[in-house]
């Protein structure tokens, strides 16, 4: 499903409480969320439970989804990430409060941002498939296996500096690929 379609479905849920749109989002994301949650350490039944909780949050907060801030898949990823931290650590993940008067606000977004977030999301996905397996697997460990840079280093018997530079290589490759796509 393209990022554009996901975005339209999510906006329809937010604006019109559209149940068919929600079911379509569920069909696409629930099985992927399950893969994410199982790999990150939630057992099968618990994974289904967290998928359910995350999709309920998607329904309830869809109104607050802002396509100019993030793509639908990114927005859903952050919900699932927070839900599994709440569920596995039993504590809330520390986050900024966008309403806090002490928060230093963003500078206004540059008008010439090369791509819309949904276009960028598709581009990132395409470029991901071009990464060498060694690099792609590092990124999956970082995001899907709850492994911080230092944990990856300890488990793979590599110096932290090596892990950092390999991840940096992968990110550089992503960046270059994205630049090529946006020309």
């Amino acid at each position: 499903m393209s990022a554009q379609v996901c975005e339209e479905l999510l906006v329809a849920v937010g604006r019109n409480r559209d149940r068919d749109a929600f079911a379509a989002l569920f069909a696409h994301f629930a099985p992927r969320l399950k893969t994410y949650l199982v790999r990150i350490g939630a057992g099968g039944e618990m994974a289904d439970e967290v998928v359910q909780e995350a999709m309920l949050v998607v329904w309830r907060r869809a109104e607050t989804f802002d396509p100019s801030q993030a793509s639908a898949s990114t927005w859903i990823f952050t919900i699932a990430r927070n839900k599994r931290i709440d569920a596995l650590r039993r504590v809330r993940r520390p986050q900024i409060d966008p309403e806090d008067p002490a928060l230093v606000p963003d500078a206004p977004k540059a008008a010439d941002e090369a791509m819309a977030d949904s276009q960028r999301a598709d581009a990132v996905k395409r470029v991901l498939t071009t990464l060498p397996e060694e690099q792609a697997s590092l990124l999956r460990q970082a995001y899907f296996e709850d492994k911080s840079h230092s944990t990856i280093a300890a488990e793979s018997d590599l110096p932290l500096g090596t892990v950092k530079s390999r991840i940096r290589l992968a990110l550089d490759k992503l960046r270059q690929g994205l630049q090529k796509e946006s020309i």
Partner: peptide, 23 residues
Amino acid sequence: ALGGALLDSAAPSAVAPDLLQSV
């Protein structure tokens, strides 16, 4: 956004058949 892209390109796993209905 990288996390979103990784999620979106993850291989799907079967969820319980009645999960959609219960949601």
